[in-house]
Design a protein around this nucleic acid. Structure first.
Lengths: 347, 347
DNA sequence: ATGAAAGCGCTAACAA
DNA sequence: TTGTTAGCGCTTTCAT
């Protein structure tokens, strides 16, 4: 009796071998495109695979070889910049047997560790860690356990490749643009971070440094004005509230948020205060997330080329899976400025 | 010699058993919280687990039991509504051993099939299919292969549970709101779909039906005005262009987009045309994605309670994993209207 | 309550 | 080129 709920036993490589009249080894070789198979055997096995609808069990493979699965750990599914990275990675893998599986750390260091461990437990062939907040030591450990590429992070790394954007230069582009428009009082909203080691590793710190350097280069050293909050929408809102609470003469004429998601909070606060952009105040962000281009937003920002970052990181990861002892490389992309309507000369 | 790249052999349950001086069977039982273990044995095994840093291999488990992994297939990482669903699911699983792994189908039926198969190959204990576009037959097949819950889809299903929003009612809320403000010419932008079976299953079709019904109920049958495009930002843009190309007398005073992501495109087109919202035209969406609340956007929309949907779907999935023959249930949530500044009485 | 042994599906080492 | 065999780490009978 075979009712609608009866489980169908999965077709295994033994079934394929029997159906094709060859050994399981032979079938395995053909399936994996390994060397040492005759054309005749190939065609017979492939026919059996097709007829029986055979699909290899990743779990069984994991116990012996690879799983053809790459794990991506993201801090936050909601930040559309990360979606660009994922797209680039997925596109690069389109014609391979590899499958991308993603998990979110919800911007939490503990969760990030948990999730990464979970991926290792699940025999991922490689890991893509996007903007991680784990300590360098922890990253080292991950990288020694499984091939790893770190994306959007600036620490040195011997065991993993790094792909990142030149955040220092990107911040400079924004300051140059605003200064060129005639702004002097340009405030910067950055992520508050006290740990000195981490400070040098996170992209936000690089952006803040780039801002400082560029302000000096433009003769605006006196005007350097940094508000430290958190790198999310609420942080942008609160930071802006703080700026607006000052007497009018101390308010900036332009705000450079360290990330578009932060700029969203800036816009929330400005809208609430009844201020117009760019009429009353100019706003710039960083990342060029999808919503930056939205008609009513039209945010001037920095394009990090997330797509290219994702594709490059994936290429490096596959290389590293092939040859684990390959020396680690660090790829840095140059960002470009995207000028939109949220910035204009000051009143 | 142990250089920095030497692979450390993973601790196995055999190591744990030996270290604790018990059988592997016993160790396994303790690790799994299975019945039939003395308190003394428990403590010894758990101590060994702790000291050795043992973590079970999901791959090895998969060959015998479960993997404690749930797969989520989403059409599009970029739609923040899906992030709400993920959050709800992740929160529900927070104190369990289960891990959520996500993959995107990029709004493509072929990819959706590929990705879902890939998850089955990887021995997921259960599948959460969000707003799938695969045929019902295909979904049935998936559900018979692995415990499955379908989210945001309206077809009947014998083998899988369904959790969805009452899209028909939600659309009614929007029409009632706009009609209450005094609008008569209310246009609706929907997803173009010709397949009659699929038409009844997709949420967008329910919303279009709800729109039609509500327009009639408000005595506006003559004003029913539907533009068919695609359910993404570009679709919203193109649909709005079509509406704006009409002579002024034929233009709507309000546009109800079938999804917030579509409303984004509507706003793009209106901004480009130099029209103000809600001054010249009111706009409403559906989903209440994060960016709908953004200051410069402030979109009136329908809250689908993605968080609750995700949590409920996950609960049902765990139930189904425990008891596969449990009859399928269908849960429908009532949406609520979120009124913001993008809607106002017509001129 | 505890343990011995078989076996999940696959691949790699080895033999023919 | 092809096949035989062992074993990856775990859970599950089935004895004891």
């Amino acid at each position: 009796m075979t009712d609608s709920l009866s489980r169908v036993r999965r077709v295994t490589i033994v079934d394929v071998a029997r159906h094709a009249g060859v050994s399981t080894t032979a079938a395995s070789k053909v399936v994996r495109n390994a060397a040492g198979t005759s054309a005749q055997m190939r065609s017979r096995v492939l026919a059996a695979v097709d007829q029986l609808g055979y699909r290899p069990s990743a779990a069984a493979r994991a116990l012996r070889g690879r799983t053809y699965t790459l794990g991506v750990v993201l801090p936050d599914i909601r930040n559309p910049f990360f979606a660009d990275i994922l797209d680039g990675a997925a596109e690069f893998l389109a014609d391979t047997d590899y499958q991308l599986l993603t998990a979110s750390s919800h911007d939490d260091e503990k969760d990030e560790g948990r999730v990464t461990e979970a991926m290792i437990d699940r025999s991922m062939d490689g890991l893509l860690l996007v903007a991680p907040i784990s300590s360098r030591k922890r990253l080292q450990y991950f990288a020694r356990t499984v091939p790893t590429v770190v994306v959007g992070w600036h620490g040195p790394g011997a065991d993993y490749d790094i792909v990142a954007d030149d955040d220092f230069a990107g911040a400079g582009l924004v300051v140059a643009h605003l200064a060129g428009l005639g702004h002097h009082r340009i405030a910067h909203i950055e992520h508050h971070e006290t740990d000195p080691v981490r400070l040098a590793e996170m992209p936000n710190a690089r952006r803040a440094d780039g801002y400082r350097y560029a302000m000096q280069a433009h003769g605006l050293a006196e005007q350097i004005d940094i508000v430290s909050t958190t790198y999310n929408r609420e942080g942008g809102y609160l930071g802006t509230r703080r700026l607006l609470d000052r007497p009018a003469s101390g308010r900036p004429t332009a705000i450079f948020a360290g990330a578009d998601i932060v700029a969203m909070g800036v816009l929330d606060a400005l809208t609430e205060a009844g201020l117009s952009v760019p009429g009353d105040i100019s706003v710039a962000g960083y990342d060029d997330i999808t919503f930056a281009s939205l008609g009513p937003v039209s945010l001037t920002t920095v394009d990090q080329a997330g797509h290219r970052i994702g594709a490059t990181a994936t290429r490096l990861l596959l290389d590293r899976i092939t040859d684990r002892s390959r020396p680690a490389s660090q790829v840095t992309f140059s960002p470009t400025l995207v000028t939109r309507r949220s910035t204009a000369p000051p009143r």
